[in-house]
């Protein structure tokens, strides 16, 4: 299915909850409000002509230092979906505010979302409401802060043993 047609389907389904679309470099992208993301994912997965059955990737971007987005929501949670039967891709993005970094979980739709969401929580500090087991994935429990946030300095170390540098 053509990318524009997929975006049109999402638009009719989501209405005002679809905040915008773009197809920069041929990657069709839908920006979805937080309230609509679970519906958008479920719809993309189950609709017979969309059938996005693989959640290829789930990540986030911290836009704290992006020129031109100082006033907008700080984070984007990014979903990359792929459909094996139809061989098409789509990207969904959910803007998240710094003060309320919560997104509903997709663990009920895809089991892999469990670990990917844990990683986003670990690295960005975005919480996923309804996640069964939201622990850190890569860092250790004693680690404070979320390293991939733009305001976390790359050299701030928190060693468990050895010299505190």
């Amino acid at each position: 299915m053509d990318g524009q047609a997929i975006l049109a389907r999402l638009e009719t389904r989501l209405g005002a909850r679809l905040l915008g679309t773009h197809d920069h470099r041929g990657d069709h992208t839908a920006i979805v409000a937080r309230e609509g993301i679970i519906e958008a994912l479920t719809f993309s997965r189950d609709e017979s002509d969309l059938r996005f059955n693989v959640l290829m990737d789930l990540t986030a971007v911290d836009y704290l230092k992006l020129p031109g987005r100082e006033d907008g929501p700080r984070f984007d949670v990014v979903y990359h979906l792929y459909s094996i039967p139809h061989n098409h891709r789509i990207r969904l993005k959910v803007p998240v505010e710094q003060d309320d970094p919560v997104v509903p979980t997709a663990t009920s739709l895809w089991p892999i979302a469990n670990w990917l969401e844990r990683e986003v929580w670990d690295m960005f500090g975005i919480r996923f409401a309804g996640h069964p087991d939201l622990r850190r994935l890569l860092m250790y429990e004693e680690f404070e802060g979320h390293p991939l946030r733009k305001d976390y300095p790359i050299e701030r170390r928190q060693p468990l043993i050895g010299p505190k540098v």
Partner: peptide
């Protein structure tokens, strides 16, 4: 990594 350091020790 710092997570692995106690194991190595």
């Amino acid at each position: 990594s710092h997570k692995m350091a106690p194991v190595l020790k």
